[in-house]
Nucleic acid binder design. Sequence first.
DNA 1: AGTTAGCACTCCGACTAAATGAGTGCTAAC
DNA 2: GTTAGCACTCATTTAGTCGGAGTGCTAACT
Lengths: 358, 358
Amino acid sequence: MELDARKKKILQAVIKNYLETGEPVGSRTISKYTDLELSAATIRNEMADLEEMGYIFQPHTSAGRIPTDAGYRLYVDDMLQTRAEQMNSRQEEPLRHAENTAGPDRMEERFERIETVLKDVVKMLAVNTNYTSVVSMPQANRNRLKFLQLTLLDSKKLLCTIVLEGNIVKNEMISIKDEIDQQTLLKLNLLMNSTLNGLTLKEINFDMAARMAEQADKHGELVSDILSHIVATIGSADGIEIFTSGAKNIFRYPELADSMRAGEIISTLEEKELLTELMTEDHGDDSDKTTGIQVYIGKETPVNSMKDCSVITATYEFEKGVYGKVGIIGPKRMDYEKVVAALSNVTDSLDKKFNKDK
Amino acid sequence: MELDARKKKILQAVIKNYLETGEPVGSRTISKYTDLELSAATIRNEMADLEEMGYIFQPHTSAGRIPTDAGYRLYVDDMLQTRAEQMNSRQEEPLRHAENTAGPDRMEERFERIETVLKDVVKMLAVNTNYTSVVSMPQANRNRLKFLQLTLLDSKKLLCTIVLEGNIVKNEMISIKDEIDQQTLLKLNLLMNSTLNGLTLKEINFDMAARMAEQADKHGELVSDILSHIVATIGSADGIEIFTSGAKNIFRYPELADSMRAGEIISTLEEKELLTELMTEDHGDDSDKTTGIQVYIGKETPVNSMKDCSVITATYEFEKGVYGKVGIIGPKRMDYEKVVAALSNVTDSLDKKFNKDK
DNA sequence: AGTTAGCACTCCGACTAAATGAGTGCTAAC
DNA sequence: GTTAGCACTCATTTAGTCGGAGTGCTAACT
């Protein structure tokens, strides 16, 4: 069977209607709703076909139709494509695009800590969309070390301050066995900085560690100790920081609101580790390369507890090469168009904001 | 009317039973449950009295009784008192107390970052009690400044690393207008450290700021700028870090599980700022001075969204004078005894752990 | 061919009525 | 002061009924 233009139009109508009402949509409704003037009976035939093709289904005999994941997928792909086309044609007249980015006024107030900015953004998103939203701090992973500083706190504790290229700062407390004096500390600082500066985490390897340990002479052990602390601190998945907002919004959507499902989702939001996979690597190849927007429908999501949700993520750039993600979690019948637009605006604003600060 | 021993016993029986079942308890049940051999009819009379006194109530005519907040209060106060007495008598034989502290094995593995420890603890609590649990990082508020360091990141940004007495480290990024060279930076570091070291946040005042600005000569503006950044960073409620676990546990208790209530609670847990009040100052005067355990029943809690819950908090000591709090949030019919015991154990373990590390 | 109207059928959801049962308050007797 | 007995209340459960929305199918229409 073939998916001709008319079937596609009907499918779209079913989905749009279902997005609005959240209830199975029947043939009569469609027959009025669409501009193609067809009777309910004809629609029924077409809908039977669409069901056979796996785009829609009935929750029970003699009920209206509901889109399947495949149906949503088709719809979303279509939407993204026409969106991309629109963007392209608009690139020539950037004015439109500019006036489209709402809300930067809220974020420009003054120089703020990035956490504050992101917390504001995520809250704003949740409030505006009525879905749950998440944001990750810029990822340090593939980032270069800019500067590191060892400071003696007391006779047994060393404070190691690590600054990465994107001006991301981390602290690590290191316990030391043997006492150490200011002089050698100064030397160590010099040594480590000169060796490590500008390096990616992945460029720091055993070889280098060995060479440094050698140069540090009797403090070799301490150096490698420090080094492994550094690597661990930055590299650990633990390092990812995620903020969420609007968790309670899932209660707006009955299909997610039963305590089992909601509990699972909320646990995931609470234990942010489980979101790591979602908020770091690019999953799937269906991401929109130009905007960094990804749409996961139902089982497509990498997060187990969200098999009944749809998740949309977008990428923002904090500094050159340093990225973070913003995401929206909602029911499968979420307003994909609105959410994609909102995320796109937000990442645009963030990109601008962070670039302006430089 | 007077609350004689028998009435008290009946009240206790009602509450105990209700804690277990979660359902209104009737006179027949009590008549069997208690050791005082009384018929249901007698119990009924007594219960009518108890209702008049405001300790219990009926959700509707011809239903069993449910404890009121006042009823719980009485019960809890009693429990805490007998508990305190037991503790006192046990102090002479500390072995008992020692074997009572379960779970330190889980936390002793190795030197861990305090965040990790606290996250483990809060998770463990949630799993063991089946309630929602929260923990706050040690509070910096009334803490002394141990050390502070200014580092030039680039021509426009200054990194300010702040270490407080309890080895709590904070970073603050400060934008500067005029460029500054390493020499003056060194001087500033020296000046600020020598002036501020060992001071409480509250001891840093305008007077001092003025004096320092004066000494800093032409960089006076920068100094006061930095100073206000420091004060703001540390002092801001923003600075409190809170971890939660087991949010989904509220769904175990139908009286909290409806989406309105649950949504409110979950929002509060998500926006940790709202928990600040709960996790910082001592509220109410009914706290158990010896253990730092506080019990908030229903409307007593300082957090608005938890008017239908009970909240129990306990204080642990990170370092001399640096405190954090652990809390359990559950339904009013929570197992107060078990929770108090669990919290008491946890704070004991934490106290020991942190003191041993030193 | 494709489209439409008509009709029997299915199934859900809302409503009603009756039965059940736990629990109370009250009275009268012990 | 305590208890047994009884009438009464009210939430919960069960079963039964009804209406409506929507379907699939067939037959007629273009």
